[in-house]
Amino acid sequence: MENIVTTKELITGYYNNGKFSAIPQYQINIAAKEGELIALIGSNGNGKTTLLKTLAGLQKYKSGEINIFGNSPKTANKLDFAKVLSIATTELLKIAYTSVYEFVMLGRYPYSNFFGKIKNDDIEIVNMALNETGIIHKKDELLNRLSDGERQRAVIARTLSQNTNVILLDEPTAFLDIKNKFEIFNLLKTLTLKFNKTIIFSTHDINTAIHIADKIWLLKTNCIINKIPEQIIFDDDLANEFNSDYLQIDKNSGNLNFINKSSAFIGLEGNSKIQTLTKNAFNRIGFEISSNKNITLNVIIEEKGNSFIWKLNDKNEIFIFNQLEELLLHLKFYKLKN
C-alpha cells in the first residue's frame, strides 16, 4: 500500500511578530497509509496540535514538504484540498441555533455551489454520516443542547460528510466519560476498517491508544517515532519518554502504572486470590512487601469459606481483621505512630 500522507524534513511551529518559533525542535519525517488509524501522542507542548493543524493547512510551516494524496496544503486549491482532508480541532462551537443535521450538512461545503443548494447525494451522505456515528436520532436537536459525547459524534459526522480520504481529529476524547471515550475510539476504528479512511487523532490516553491504533506517532522532545504499538513498547520508547518518579510503563503490556512511594516494609503470606489486591493496597498506602522473615510487621491471609481474614502480627501482638479496609486503617495509624 502506498503512503497517502507524507512529510519530508518538515519544520512546524508558529510565527510570532514575524519570527518563527519551531515546535518541535526537529525535522518531522512521517508517513501514513490508507486505512490506518494513527494515534498521535506526546507530552503537552511537544507540538501535537501544531502538527495536525500544519498537515491540514491551518498553520504555516517554515520548511520541508507535506504531501497529502498528491496535494500540498501550501499550494493546493483550498476547495480541492478540502475534498481530500478534513479536520476537527478543539475550537469551541458557539452557535445558538444550528441543528445537528444542519451542522453535518455544512461539511458538504466543498461540494456545493456558492449558494449551498442541497442536492440528493448531499442528503444521502449526511444521513450516512449521521447513521455511522450513531447520532441520527438527535439530528433535529440543536448542537448546543447535546452532551459532550453526542457533540463529538456530530463533529466526527461532519468530517465524514466532507467525504475525505484523510481525517484529522485533535483530542476527540477529551472531556468524555470513559464509556463515551471507548465508544468514540471504537467508532474511529470502525471508520478506518469500513471506509478505508486514514484517521490521525491526538490523545493523552496512551493506554487505550496502544490497544486500538495501527500506528503510534510519538512526538518526543528530540525526535518523532512512527511505529506499530507493540514495537514501541518493545523498544522501550514509551518508557524512555514517559517514565518518571510516579509513572512506569510495563515492559510487557505497555500499560502505565502509578509508582507508589514506600516508606515502610511489611511481610505478606498466604496463597489466595486476594493476595495481589492486598499487595496493591499495601503499596498504595506506602508499604513495600518484604520477604525478610525477621520483619516486625507481618500479615497472613486465611481463607474462610467464601470470605477472608487478615491476621496482622505486630511484634508478637496479633490482630485479626475481617475487612481489608480496617486493616489498612490500622496500618496507616501504625505508620503515623512510628
Partner: peptide
C-alpha cells in the same frame, strides 16, 4: 460561524 479553523478546512 463554526470558527476560523472549521471554515478554512472546509475550503473557504
Amino acid at each position: 460561524l463554526l470558527g476560523d479553523d472549521n471554515a478554512k478546512s472546509s475550503g473557504i
